[in-house]
C-alpha cells in the first residue's frame, strides 16, 4: 500500500541560517499511530509544520495522500488536522463558534451533529457556550483538539500533545487516539516522553539534530535493540572481577556487592547457565538475582547518544 505521507530529502534552513532538518526521508503508513521521538530542538515541530504548511521547506518533497503539499496544497491540507505544540486561542470567542469556524475554514459544510460528537467526546459539550478565556489550560488543549477534528481529517498531527497535561486528560486523549485509529485515521504524534511512544505507537521514528536516526516497528525495535541484564547480589564484596571471569561481559558495582551481566535477547543462548556454573566454581556466593529488560528509554538514550 502507498504511504499516506511520504517525506523525501526534506531540508529546512531557517532565516537565521540554522539547519533544522538535514535531509529527512520518512514514510507514514495509512492507519498507523506513528511516534516521532526526539529530544528538544531535534526538528520534530519543524517537520510537522512543513507538512501542515506553516513552514516553507528549503528543499525536498512532501506528499500527503498522494498530493504534493506545495503544488497541490488544497487537496493535501484538506486531509490534515493539526494540534500544534503551543496552545493558542481566540480568547473572546465561544468554544462552539471556534469549532464551527475551524470546520468551515477547511472547506467543509456545517455539520453540527459531528461537532457535537467531537465536543462530547472531549467533555467540552457543557462548555460550548463559554468563552475560551474562561477555560482552564487542559480545557483549552481540548478545544485545540476539537478544532483539529472539526473537519474530519484523515491524518492527525499531535505535536507534544501531553506536555503539561494532567493524568486524566492524558488517559482520555489516548483513548480518543485509539478510537480515531480504529476509524481509519492516521495519527502522527511527537513526544519526548518515551513511555508515551512505547504505550501508544505502532511504529517509532527517532529524530535527532535534524536527522532521522531510525524508523522501526515498535515491537521489532524493542526486540532488536533490547538487552537484558542479570544482576547478582553478592554475599560479600569482591575487590575485582576474578581473572577466570574476565572473558564474560561483566561489570562490578563500586561497592563490589553487585555483579551485572548484560546479554542479548537475540542470541542463541543467553549464557546464563554456564555463567552461574563458573561463578560457583570461583567460590562466589550470591544472595539474590534479578533480570531486567531495557526500556525504549534506554534504547533512545543510547541511540541519541551515539549520533551526537
Amino acid at each position: 500500500m502507498d504511504p499516506i505521507i511520504s517525506v523525501r530529502d526534506l531540508v529546512k534552513t531557517y532565516a537565521s541560517g540554522f539547519r533544522a532538518l538535514k535531509g529527512v526521508s520518512l514514510e507514514i503508513r495509512a492507519g498507523e499511530i506513528f511516534a516521532l521521538l526526539g529530544p528538544n530542538g531535534a526538528g520534530k515541530s519543524t517537520l510537522i509544520n512543513i507538512v501542515c504548511g506553516l513552514v516553507t521547506p528549503t528543499a525536498g518533497q512532501v506528499c500527503a495522500g498522494g498530493h504534493d503539499i506545495v503544488r497541490d496544497y488544497r487537496a493535501a491540507r484538506a486531509l490534515i488536522g493539526l494540534v500544534p505544540q503551543e496552545i493558542t486561542s481566540d480568547a473572546f470567542e465561544s468554544v462552539w463558534l471556534t469549532v464551527r469556524f475551524s470546520r468551515g475554514l477547511f472547506g467543509r459544510p456545517p455539520d453540527d451533529a459531528h461537532l457535537e460528537r467531537v465536543l462530547r467526546e472531549l467533555s467540552l459539550w457543557d462548555k460550548r457556550d463559554d468563552r475560551i478565556l474562561t477555560l482552564s489550560g487542559g480545557m483549552k488543549r481540548r478545544v485545540m483538539i476539537a478544532k483539529a477534528l472539526a473537519h474530519e481529517p484523515r491524518i492527525l498531527f499531535l505535536d507534544e500533545p501531553t506536555a503539561g497535561v494532567d493524568v486524566e486528560l492524558r488517559r482520555e486523549m489516548w483513548a480518543m487516539v485509539r478510537r480515531l485509529r480504529s476509524s481509519g485515521v492516521t495519527i502522527i504524534l511527537t513526544t519526548h516522553y518515551i513511555e508515551e511512544a512505547e504505550e501508544m505507537a505502532d511504529r517509532v521514528g527517532i529524530i535527532n539534530h535534524g536527522d532521522i536516526v531510525l524508523v522501526e516497528d515498535k515491537q521489532t525495535l524493542m526486540r532488536k535493540l533490547g538487552r537484558r541484564q542479570l544482576t547478582l547480589q553478592l554475599q560479600s564484596p569482591l575487590p575485582a572481577i576474578p581473572p577466570g571471569l574476565a572473558d564474560r561481559q561483566l561489570e562490578l558495582s563500586a561497592d563490589g556487592l553487585q555483579l551485572v551481566y548484560t546479554f542479548d535477547t537475540q542470541a542463541e543462548t543467553t549464557g546464563i547457565a554456564s555463567l552461574l556454573r563458573q561463578i560457583r566454581d570461583q567460590g562466589i556466593d550470591f544472595r539474590d538475582l534479578q533480570t531486567s529488560e531495557s526500556s525504549l528509554e534506554q534504547i533512545f538514550v543510547s541511540l541519541v547518544g551515539s549520533s551526537r
Binding site: A76, R77, A78, L82
Partner: peptide
Amino acid sequence: YEVLSAPL
C-alpha cells in the same frame, strides 16, 4: 496557524 494550515 489554523488559517495558514487550511486549504485556502
